[in-house]
């Protein structure tokens, strides 16, 4: 992303008007600083209020929040995050496995394969994928993708059923983990592709030329001079994509059938996630139910925060590395 190429030149200039006091100076500085601090405060407030509003429900819970699979906070006061957290991580991991190779291919296409003239407009086309609202993907998933996947799902189950992901009895196809993961993959693809594209374009031209001068083919040149250079960037892009997938709500809320079990079967209608459960359960939740949903939101917040912070740290380290190498 362009934010990664911030330069030092644009840095602040030392204020040297000590002798020229101006009436507006202090208030302006204070307002600017306050805005920045407000941002930090919002982040802190999110954690604080999610915790404080979740606590009553967690106290009323008669099951262990972290190991319980079912979610019945409204009637029985029994609820746990286990199945939902599993579904969140599993669906996002699947989406990542689907999206990352395609995103790397797209990024390479834009940076090293497409004709110069077409590269920018084609890149914009991929960015458009990110502009489609989540709820539209959900609608598309339910109306188009779910029916489309039915026959291939049955084929996979019949012929490759020994493979745990494709196993399962009873209904095959429909609103499955696979359908949700594919929709998630489409949604996170543009962000992974955009960041990867930027780091691939930053790969030093002189190293690419060195590889070509050694008699490398285009692919060998990319393997020698582009991919190793871009690896940290691609990894953090994938992590950002993972964070995005885990927090994605409405599309999967429409697709996932809201079951509460832990299974690796991606072709049977068993799938759910924390975010989908919040969207589907909020409307009919009572006080305890809402507290329980807030508690699950807190878990989601913490997981995505960790993933995002990890990704940002990799990016920041790479920035220093790139600067030192320049």
């Amino acid at each position: 992303m362009t934010t990664n190429v911030r330069t030092r030149e644009g840095g602040p200039v030392k204020h040297r008007s000590a002798s020229r006091r101006s009436h507006g100076e202090a208030p302006f500085r204070i307002v600017s600083t306050a805005a920045g601090i407000l941002l930090l405060a919002i982040m802190a407030a999110i954690a604080v209020f999610l915790i404080s509003e979740a606590l009553p429900a967690l106290r009323a819970n008669e099951a262990d929040f972290f190991t319980e699979r079912t979610w019945n906070p409204n009637s029985e006061r029994v609820f746990g995050i286990a199945a939902l957290a599993f579904g969140t991580v599993f669906s996002s991991a699947l989406a990542l496995v689907i999206a990352t190779p395609i995103a790397i291919g797209v990024a390479l296409f834009i940076s090293h394969y497409a004709p110069r003239r077409l590269a920018a407009p084609l890149g914009y086309l991929i960015d458009l994928l990110a502009a489609v609202p989540s709820v539209v993907y959900g609608l598309w998933g339910v109306a188009f993708l779910v029916p489309l996947l039915r026959t291939p799902s049955q084929w996979l189950n019949e012929h490759l059923g020994w493979f745990p992901l494709f196993a399962g009895e009873g209904i095959i196809g429909g609103k499955t983990m696979l359908a949700g993961a594919i929709v998630l993959a489409i949604m996170i693809l543009p962000i992974i592709a955009a960041i990867s594209r930027e780091v691939f374009l930053q790969a030093p031209k002189m190293n690419e030329e060195a590889a070509l001068a050694l008699g490398a083919t285009r692919w060998e040149m990319i393997k020698m001079a582009v991919l190793p250079f871009g690896r940290p960037g691609v990894i953090s892009a994938a992590m950002l994509g993972l964070g995005r997938a885990m927090g994605e709500t409405i599309a999967v809320a429409l697709i996932f059938p809201a079951t509460f079990d832990i299974t690796f079967e991606i072709l049977t209608p068993h799938a759910n996630s924390i975010a989908a459960n919040i969207a589907n359960g909020f409307g009919e939740a009572n006080d305890i139910g809402r507290g329980a949903l807030i508690a699950s939101g807190l878990v989601l917040f913490v997981i995505t925060l960790l993933v995002n912070m990890g990704a940002r740290m990799i990016i920041n380290r790479r920035k220093e590395y790139a600067r030192a190498g320049a």
Partner: peptide
């Protein structure tokens, strides 16, 4: 071109060893 470059080596203006190797 690939086989031509294999036969005719090149050294550039600025040293350009592969940084990750």
């Amino acid at each position: 071109p690939v086989s031509v470059r294999r036969m005719i080596g090149m050294v550039f203006q600025r040293p350009n060893p592969f940084p990750t190797m």
